[in-house]
Design a binder for these strands. Structure first.
Lengths: 199, 199
DNA sequence: GAGGGATTTTGACACTGTCAAGATTGCGCG
DNA sequence: CGCGCAATCTTGACAGTGTCAAAATCCCTC
């Protein structure tokens, strides 16, 4: 099944997803064209259209894979929640984004979200990630001595914004660079922690 | 000078910048093509290329105008700095971004920053904005009873990230929406404030 | 008035996403 | 076993994109 004769690829969909991610990583967003992708997969220009309705759907599928890899980054052990643990959490989030920038760009980029043609599967995946995070904050409130007056949703929105903003500025090379990631993560984690300790 | 005969436009550069921003606002990023822009300016396809080397330079010029409008949003009266004032500052930043999303997308978007062909004028404008913000934080430290151990640069990086992250999530319609902007701004401003009060 | 530099146009090229029609194949049902 | 159908892949085509080169047109200065 490895070396197929010619006509039928056998596992084109899988190949397309992998090669597309590779192209994105190596050549950047501009480098990923349907035609280049098809060529790289050793197939003709329009073959991909039998597996994805259009380019947007291809990108949505890649983003979904991104979210699947993303799972695990968000989870924080709430037993013995501490400042250090929060700082580590920030580090994990940023490291994922920086090391998987092709995926992160699709998962949280305007390209898909502002297009209006985002797949509902992707939307579900994204929203459930955020809901998971909010639920986790609520769990902290129950288990730890954390200000019960804190609005978990607002806190989640603002802290996620901080994480997302740092990732964007890092990936795009604006204001932040990876050389100072450590101290920045500590600062962010400290702020997250401090807000939880408010009486 | 208003109604020119035909051939020479007279003020094409200015017209292009305005019409480009209009196109962006009305049709979105996809809607802004050099050809559509030329048509809208009532001129032939390649005329714009005598005022901007290529599309990137056009976008850079628009982004520069964005930064010029942006000036003033960053300034915070440090006399009587307060939690409310910080919250208002957050509100101002977000309102600018949301109300001028076409500009904000260019000013802080990957489109220009990741291209490698960003104009140095734009880069200067952007960096000086950030330096201004950092200097402002340092001024607070001098004038108010604010923790002198706070690293102003780190604080500036993290708070700017929060602002930028909120803007991105708002503009792209991920997780945040404008209906809850008020409480979110308050939450962010409170966190900013609290970090300044650390002994 | 003539010339020159700025400005605009027309023509062309390589590239993009995507549709329609045909070619080729593998699989299920008889 | 074999036949037909559906899935898969290809070729051809079209409109649209950014941008270059050469030609046309204009305005301004001497």
């Amino acid at each position: 099944m490895a070396e197929k004769s010619t006509y039928h690829h056998g596992d084109l969909r899988r190949t397309l997803l992998d090669q597309a991610a590779g192209l994105l990583r190596e050549e950047g967003e501009k480098g990923l064209s349907m035609r280049a992708l098809a060529a790289r997969a050793g197939v003709s220009r329009t073959a991909p259209y039998h597996h994805f309705a259009d380019k947007q759907q291809l990108l949505c599928a890649i983003a979904e894979e991104g979210f699947r890899r993303f799972v695990g980054v968000l989870r924080i052990e709430s037993a013995a929640l501490s400042e250090q643990r929060l700082q580590q959490f920030v580090r994990n989030y940023l490291e994922f984004a920086v090391n998987n920038a092709e995926y992160y760009d699709l998962m949280f980029g305007s390209q898909l979200w502002k297009s209006g043609h985002i797949s509902s599967a992707l939307q579900d995946e994204a929203h459930s990630s955020f809901r998971f995070y909010v639920a986790q904050v609520r769990a902290w409130q129950d288990q730890q001595r954390i200000s019960p007056t804190l609005d978990a949703l607002r806190y989640a929105q603002v802290t996620w914004s901080t994480l997302h903003g740092m990732c964007r500025l890092l990936i795009d090379g604006i204001y932040l660079d990876t050389a100072t990631m450590g101290p920045m993560c500590d600062q962010a984690g400290s702020m997250f922690w401090r807000e939880l300790q408010v009486p």
